[in-house]
Design a protein around this nucleic acid. Sequence first.
RNA 1: GGGGAGAUACCGAAGCGGUCAAACGGGGCAGACUGUAAAUCUGUUGGCUACGCCUUCGUAGGUUCGAAUCCUGCUCUCCCCA
Length: 302
Amino acid sequence: MQKYLIILTGPTGIGKTSTGMALAKHFNTEIVSSDSRQIYKELNIGTAVPNKEELALIKHHLIQNHSIHENFNVSKFENEALDIINSLFKKNNLVLLVGGSMLYIDAVCNGIDNMPDTDPEIRDILKNRLESEGIESLRFQLKKLDPDYYNTIDLKNTNRIIHALEISIMTGKPYSNFLTKSKKERSFSIIKIGLNCERAKLHNIINTRVDHMVNAGLEDEARNLYHLKHLNALNTVGYRELFAFFDNEISREKAIELIKRNSRRYARKQLTWFRNDDEMNWFEPNQTTEIITFIENKIDKK
RNA sequence: GGGGAGAUACCGAAGCGGUCAAACGGGGCAGACUGUAAAUCUGUUGGCUACGCCUUCGUAGGUUCGAAUCCUGCUCUCCCCA
């Protein structure tokens, strides 16, 4: 029996959760989340996780099942998501992957190359060197250790330089050796559904949603996490801006304004990414019926 | 009613006779993307039949070889005095 993974994605705020719920109900299946921040149990309001009622109605996976103290990453996500998806396929022919984290979705669909997990110590050393010696020093070393990558990478992107360096240093092999650019085989078919609407409308939704989050107590949530602000998981829209407010760098109003702006920008980045995906089938958020018909037609034809 | 200040591109704000399609900031738009990805980085922002052309600096005229920049009328905004 052919198995189908339905990818439901789109920009933040577009309505993936509710559409996903409707699809899960109709196809009598479960939802695997592909959201890099809803995966953390300490994060709630700011990540707009499905609420208790929703979670009670439809079984969700990879929601709030990790801690921000862990070193989570795409590769771990790929493995965990695939495990869950494959086990769900034992009882369902169709499983939903719902979320907006582009790279995470990509890892489930196409896989990510095998390479060692990064070593926090090496990263710290490199970061310190960046501070003390400047980016040139790191570039210089990268040029020596991995000239190929050095020639293709954006040399202003410190994160990428640091990652390439840490892998090259850890393994003694150029980072680019690990990049196979090959696509991993999956045992299931993939149908991609993208939700989008008029940009002005999306901005409106996002702005209102941020106001709702603030009313729901986002500030308290952030304040309780403030002492952990150095954690990568908290380098996230909705938290970092409030941390800046707590640090007296900006006003509360400014923080809220920035959360809105950064959410809008995040939405745009998501759309840039998804637009490039030829396999994406686009719908408006209220077209649940059309989406269901679309999926059923796709499945019937096979 | 009297006096003063000002109207610049999506917004804020420089410019104060040519080197101005107009600094700078914000916002927007576009793009890159392999273990930090809600991250990180890049480009762009009057129009076009695009190494050139066309229309822009409240509005209508005027001065000048040449105006966003000078002069005049008008409209609107703000401030002070009545």
